[in-house]
Design a protein around this nucleic acid. Structure first.
Ligand code: ZN
Ligand code: ZN
Ligand code: ZN
Ligand code: ZN
Lengths: 156, 156
DNA sequence: TCTGAAACTGATACCCGGTATCAATAACTG
DNA sequence: CAGTTATTGATACCGGGTATCAGTTTCAGA
């Protein structure tokens, strides 16, 4: 049988504090607290959310740690129109996001056809393609149940 | 001959002040100044840029007018990771953006294959798809010439 | 044309997310 | 252990954007 073009993003065992260490940063207790919390969360989060979850850690440190992780490629940063960016653990693989327009829940997916199309675009776009980003706005199943009102704006 | 899957976004004659009037807003001199300036600019712009261009118009009014235009669907708002969102006149058609990672220049395009793929994704994604967004990061031709350093970050 | 209600404007203060500063502290090195 | 360097977090600050609100403009109706 043909494999589906859509595939889940594998939850590769990423170790965030190793990612920091690999950048020459020290493995401190505070950083372990932050990375530990991020690893506990299963899904996307905002910086403020992390601050709330870790009242014992200074705001600056939370933001700095997130920035380090993004720089290390261990977190991906997802721009949210009209809102703070969200972060999620970046598995090694390239992927895209689904965002529930109602509750803001973020999911990840890969789709081989999408990537093939992107590749084929290269011939037709002016300039050198250096990357791309794609988000699919959805109403997630749990929100469908409650048929909530839109909270995130959508670029249709 | 077969039409290319890629097409330029038509520069439909959009009248921004009409768009405001259609929402029940008054056609004031200040608003004409703002919409006039936006129509002069050919391409994407930031709110601050518009404020600079129109020192005679209050910041609040510039931001309010932009918001009205976005609400009216006459401007599209493009999230820029690590930067202020950019706006461009929203032709009626659905489209996507190219962003030069080096200079920030924004272009628009449509690609029928992309839309077909998005449509086909509907079967495989959990929840109801309500929209999508896609940006292609490029190094534009003029930047290629100067091989400038990256300024905008890219979600690879 | 006058008049009052409603809309608009812009100076201001404020909010929010995020960052620079910097003195105090912790972590390494030898 | 002592010196050096990295880290931390309180604080002040910054940029983008919005709420407020008094003064001005618009406009429908008399
Ligand atoms: Zn939802
Ligand atoms: Zn992709
Ligand atoms: Zn460029
Ligand atoms: Zn599309």
């Amino acid at each position: 049988m043909a494999a589906s073009a859509l595939s889940k993003v594998e939850s590769v065992g990423v170790n965030l504090s190793n990612a920091l260490e690999d950048r020459g940063l020290r493995r401190t207790a505070t950083r372990m607290t932050v990375t530990g919390r991020i690893e506990q969360l299963n899904g996307a989060f905002t910086a403020e959310q992390l601050c709330r979850d870790l009242p014992g850690v200074g705001r600056a440190t939370v933001y700095r740690t997130i920035r380090h992780l993004v720089d290390a490629g261990a977190l991906c940063k997802l721009p949210i129109l009209d809102g703070a960016p969200m972060y999620s653990i970046a598995r090694i693989e390239h992927h895209h996001h689904t965002i529930c327009s109602s509750c803001g829940a973020v999911g990840e997916f890969r789709h081989s056809t999408v990537e093939r199309v992107m590749r084929s675009l290269a011939k037709e776009i002016d300039g050198d393609i250096v990357g791309h980003r794609m988000e699919i706005f959805i109403t997630c199943n749990s929100c469908l149940a409650e048929s909530a009102t839109g909270k995130f704006s959508v670029h249709v």
